[in-house]
Each structure stands twice: as C-alpha cells, then as structure tokens.
Design a protein around this nucleic acid. Sequence first.
DNA 1: TATAATTTTTAGATTTGTCTAAATTTTAAT
DNA 2: ATTAAAATTTAGACAAATCTAAAAATTATA
Lengths: 217, 217
Amino acid sequence: MTLAEENYLKAIYHLEQQFPKGVSTNALAEEMKTKASSATDMVKKLAEKNMLTHIPYQGATLSDAGRDYAVNVIRRHRLWEVFLVEKLNFTWDEVHEVAEHLEHIQSDKLIDELDAFLGHPTNDPHGDPIPDKAGNFKHIEKIVLAKAEVGATYKCVGVDDSSSKFLKYLDSNKIALGTVITINHKEPFDNSIKISLENSEIVVSQSVAKNLYIKKV
Amino acid sequence: MTLAEENYLKAIYHLEQQFPKGVSTNALAEEMKTKASSATDMVKKLAEKNMLTHIPYQGATLSDAGRDYAVNVIRRHRLWEVFLVEKLNFTWDEVHEVAEHLEHIQSDKLIDELDAFLGHPTNDPHGDPIPDKAGNFKHIEKIVLAKAEVGATYKCVGVDDSSSKFLKYLDSNKIALGTVITINHKEPFDNSIKISLENSEIVVSQSVAKNLYIKKV
DNA sequence: TATAATTTTTAGATTTGTCTAAATTTTAAT
DNA sequence: ATTAAAATTTAGACAAATCTAAAAATTATA
Ligand SMILES: [Mn+2]
Ligand SMILES: [Mn+2]
Ligand SMILES: [Mn+2]
Ligand SMILES: [Mn+2]
C-alpha cells in the first residue's frame, strides 16, 4: 500500500461512519482536498486491490481487508499522537499534522514496541479510541455536549472537531479532557449552553456544544 | 526536498568522504541501488536546486546548502536510531531500515524534542556521531582495528559496515560498543588478528578488522 | 415526463522518479 | 595516435498521483 492509498483508505473509513450506504466520489474528494476525478481513479485502484467495492455512480464501501487496513493506519496515527504529547511535549493541537506522516512508517515491531512503551494507551490526546493490534476498539459511551441535561455533571472525554482552532479555543477556556463541568442553563434562542468549570462559569455556543463529547460522572 | 532528493543528498554526502574530488555517477547509482541514468537525472535536478555543482562527466560536489541539508538528514536518522534502541528495544542491527523512513519526517519541533527526550546523545548505536542542530559533529579520534598495535588495549567505539550481518557477527562474539579488547597477535599471512575480550580470546579476519573502530584506553 | 442541474466518469496532459537502449565523452590499451 | 573499453549522458518510455476539460449518468425540478 502506498502512502496515498493509505490516506484514502483512512478517509473512506471515516466517511463510512457518516455515509454507511457508500462513500460518494465528491465526499471523498472533499475529504482528501483533491478533485473528483482523482478520487475516482484511486477508488478504482483500491477496488482492483480488493480493498473496497465500487459500484460506478453509487459510491465505495470498504471490504473487510480494507477496513482492517484502515483501522491499522488509525492505530498507528493515534499511538504516534500519544507519543508526541506524552513524551515530546507537543500540545494536542500540534500533533495531527506530524502523526499524519508518522502513521505511514511500515514496521510492525515499531508500532508494537511503541504501544508497549506508552503503556498500551486506550485513547489518543483527542479522546479517540486506539484500536488494539487485532483492530478492536474500546468504545466509551459518550454524548455530545449539546445533548446534556441541565443540572447534571459531566466529564469532558473527547472532541469531534480536532482542528487547531477548536482545540486552542478549549485551551483558552480551560477545558481539557477530564475536565468536569456542570450544565447550568440551555438557551433556547441560540442553543448556547452556560456551564460551570472548577473556577469559572462560561457560555459556549452551539457549534462548540456540538463538537465536545462528555460523559456523566 | 522530496524523500528521493533527501536520500540522494545523504548518499552523495557519504560518498564525498571517500571521493572528495567529486562523486561519480556510477558510485552514486551503486550506493542508491539504481541505474546510472537515474543518478544523472537526480544530480541534474539537485544542481538546479543549488544543492550541488555538477560538471558533466566529472562528478558532483555538494554546495554548502546541500551539505547542511545532508547533515540534517543524518542528524534525524541517527537520533531515530538512538530512540529505537534506547526506548523501543530494537537491536543495533534492526534500526537502520526503520530510521531510513523516519528520517524523512519533516518537523523541526519533532527532532528538537526527540533530541532533548533522548538527553542530547552524541553518538548513534553504531558509534557514529550525531550532529547538533547547527550541524556540528563531535569527532572522536578512532582507528580501525586493522591498524592496532600488538600488546595495546583498546575500546570498541564504532563500526564502518553497519550491515545486519556484520553486527550480528559482533553480537555472537560478544563485541559491543564499549567492549575493551587487547591485541595479542597480528598474523602476517592473512592479516587476521588475535584479540582478548573479557572472558575469551578470538581471532578476527581482516575484513572484520577493517570494519571495527577502536580507541586506545 | 421532459429538461435542467448535479454528480461521476473518462480522456488526455503533467510531474516525479525510474527504466532500457542508444549516443556521447572520457579513459585505458595497444 | 588509434582503437577499444568504460563511464556518462540523452532519448524515449512507464507507473503513480494528480489536474483540466469534456462526456455520461443520475437526480432534481418544472
Ligand atoms: Mn497520512
Ligand atoms: Mn487524534
Ligand atoms: Mn531514507
Ligand atoms: Mn547508524
């Protein structure tokens, strides 16, 4: 598998969560920041390699082999993200780009040893689960902040949008994974939410509330 | 700089030690395990980018920019080798291939932090010096075992050939970096050398003696 | 249902790094 | 000084991954 093929497989895997019936050429091209014709070419190549099935004009669906491969790339990506934060003083908004490259280094021993060195972490710095060697995820039940109940107390456990902008917004409001929050008020007018942190009370917009995952404590 | 360009720069840098007047196309092609015509093409491209000067039919010589770039790739390579051995339980004969890929990850922060994480090591697992961020090497004076004096005592400090075969040979004879040896006899017939280790006396062939670096203690 | 808009695919071109085969230049040997 | 051998470069081709422009298929709209 080439670097480009691995990136496409990962993108298709992620898009399948959103479009289980099949990933469209346009959606894939947008995700890969490329043109639809390029996406078509790559989909055909991956179909040729039995990584996915492709019905022309209907979209692509990963095969078992393709899904396994994609999950393995995700495993590598997330383990490297943990390494960068835990060992090399990267912040959670800095890791993604570098991990995007590190994930393509081909060596089973490298990843197995890295996994052990990090103490077999189950989640990456953004709260996303790290598949084990066999490809099994440990799912935690989580909800999006937008669906929280007023009066209840939650712990922050993940982010949907892991863009640098969003993560820096969370930093500047002292919200990190593990932070405990209480829901004080949900404003029906703009769906903003007033929450209590340890030492502050802040109002977060709907778009923030849709991108932060929480879990009841 | 692309991955291929970085690999060629590094190869030219290494070959310049051996051929200071200019690196020939054939030598470069052999080092890169490619064909002379490919080497010519790449040399022309690197000349275009002012990484080296190329006189047709005469060979290539790195520019200051090219040398700096090559040294930086070598720095990355050797730091990753240290990481693999010190942190991920790789043996010194396993690291080269993986480091060959890791060295191309582009991130100054990554390398600076890795360097600090490893405690600013000065030598890689094969005894080769690791250039600092500015590109300065810390040379240790060393000689090749073949030039050792009978009766003297030395410490092993490096290898010339860092192929897996040679390193495994050293392992099986309990020779590692830091190992202290005494020269008992040099056989004029085949240039083999009889040496004492802590608990053994062994005879090493000329080709071993030419590939092991030592330093007087 | 016919037509328009959108999506997807195909055709042809481009860049990078490689190859083989042929031409050129340099070096070595008569 | 010729000729032969070796090294190097050029010419033309190819696979990978991308692009633009045009054609084909699907979906939406009137
Ligand atoms: Mn990637
Ligand atoms: Mn992540
Ligand atoms: Mn390399
Ligand atoms: Mn080394």
